[in-house]
C-alpha cells in the first residue's frame, strides 16, 4: 500500500508540473486566479436572473429580447426577437411592461459570453416588476455558429 501511495503521489506531482509548464506556454493560457464573482453569469445569479446555455435556448418557448445595438439586430437576430438596445430601453418601455404584465418567460441575449448588455437590461426590467427573466449567456454569435435559426 505504501508503494502504491508513493506511486500515486508521483503521478499527481508529475501531472502538476506538466500542467504548470503547459499553462505557461499554452496559446490560450488562463490566469491562475480569476474573479469569477464578476463574471456575467455570477452577477445574473446574484440578481436572481436564471442563466441558460445555447442547448436550452434552442428549445425555449419564450419571447427573446435582443439587447444588442440596432444595427447588429438588423444584420441578424433570433426569429421573432424584440429589439431593445440597452441604451434605448426606455423607448420600448410600453412593450416591455406588457411582457412583464403577461408574466411570460423573457429570454434576454446580447452578442457573446463576454457582453453584459442583456444582463443590464434584465436588471432594468426587474425595476418595474419583471421576474420571469432568463439570460441566454452564450449570445447571438454562438446561436448563429451552431446553426440556430436566424432572421434577417
Amino acid at each position: 500500500m505504501g508503494t502504491t501511495l508513493k506511486r500515486a503521489g508521483m503521478i499527481l506531482l508529475v501531472s502538476g508540473v506538466v500542467a504548470v509548464v503547459a499553462n505557461t506556454v499554452h496559446p490560450r493560457r488562463i490566469p491562475w486566479v480569476q474573479s469569477w464573482s464578476n463574471h456575467v453569469e455570477a452577477r445574473a445569479r446574484e440578481a436572481g436572473v436564471r442563466v441558460m446555455p445555447l442547448s436550452v435556448a434552442l428549445e425555449a418557448r419564450a419571447r427573446f429580447v435582443d439587447a444588442r445595438p440596432r444595427e447588429e439586430f438588423e444584420r441578424g437576430r433570433i426569429p421573432a426577437a424584440l429589439s431593445v438596445p440597452l441604451g434605448e430601453w426606455e423607448d420600448a418601455f410600453a412593450l416591455l411592461a406588457d411582457l412583464v404584465e403577461s408574466n411570460g418567460p423573457m429570454v434576454l441575449y446580447c452578442g457573446n459570453r463576454d457582453c453584459d448588455d442583456a444582463l443590464l437590461l434584465a436588471l432594468e426590467i426587474q425595476t418595474f416588476g419583471g421576474t420571469n427573466l432568463f439570460l441566454y449567456s452564450d449570445g447571438f454569435e454562438a446561436w448563429e455558429e451552431h446553426g440556430g435559426p436566424v432572421e434577417r
Binding site: S15, A22, V33
Partner: peptide
C-alpha cells in the same frame, strides 16, 4: 471558491492524461 476554479481547470485535464498514460 473562485480562487480554486482556474487551478483545478488547469490541473485536472493533465492529471487525466497522466492517469491514462500510466
Amino acid at each position: 471558491p473562485d480562487v480554486w476554479v482556474n487551478p483545478v481547470a488547469i490541473y485536472l485535464p493533465w492529471l487525466e492524461v497522466g492517469v491514462a498514460f500510466c
